[in-house]
Computed example of a mutant assay.
Amino acid sequence: MFLRKSLALAACVLALSSPVWAAPASTYDFGQPAPASKATRSVEVVMGDMSFTPKAIDIKAGETIRFVLVNKGQLLHEFNLGDAAMHARHQQEMLQMQQSGMMTPTGMMNMDHGSMAGMDHSSQGHAMKHDDPNSVLVEPGKTAELTWTFSKAANLEFACNVPGHYQAGMVGKLTVSQ
Rank of each mutant, 00 (worst) to 15 (best):
M1D: 09
S6R: 14
L7T: 10
A8I: 11
A11S: 13
A11T: 09
V13A: 14
V13P: 10
V13Q: 06
L14V: 11
V20R: 12
V20N: 07
V20Q: 12
A23K: 13
S26H: 06
D29T: 12
F30G: 02
F30V: 04
A36K: 05
K38A: 15
R41H: 11
R41D: 11
V43F: 07
V43Q: 12
V45S: 01
M47A: 12
G48R: 09
D49K: 10
S51N: 14
K55R: 15
A56S: 14
A56L: 04
I57S: 03
D58F: 02
A61K: 07
A61H: 04
E63I: 00
T64I: 04
R66E: 15
R66G: 03
V70S: 11
N71E: 02
K72A: 11
K72V: 02
G73T: 02
Q74C: 01
L75P: 00
H77S: 13
N80T: 05
L81K: 00
G82N: 03
D83E: 07
H87P: 03
H90V: 02
Q91R: 13
Q91M: 10
L95C: 00
Q98S: 07
Q99C: 00
G107Y: 06
M109H: 09
G114P: 05
G114F: 04
A117Y: 06
H121D: 03
S122I: 07
Q124R: 08
Q124K: 08
A127N: 09
A127F: 04
D131I: 10
N134K: 15
L137E: 01
L137I: 01
V138I: 13
E139P: 01
G141W: 05
E145S: 14
W148V: 08
W148H: 07
S151C: 01
K152H: 12
E157S: 08
P163N: 14
G164R: 13
H165L: 05
G169S: 11
M170C: 15
G172S: 04
L174P: 04
V176Y: 08
V176E: 10
S177P: 00
Q178V: 01
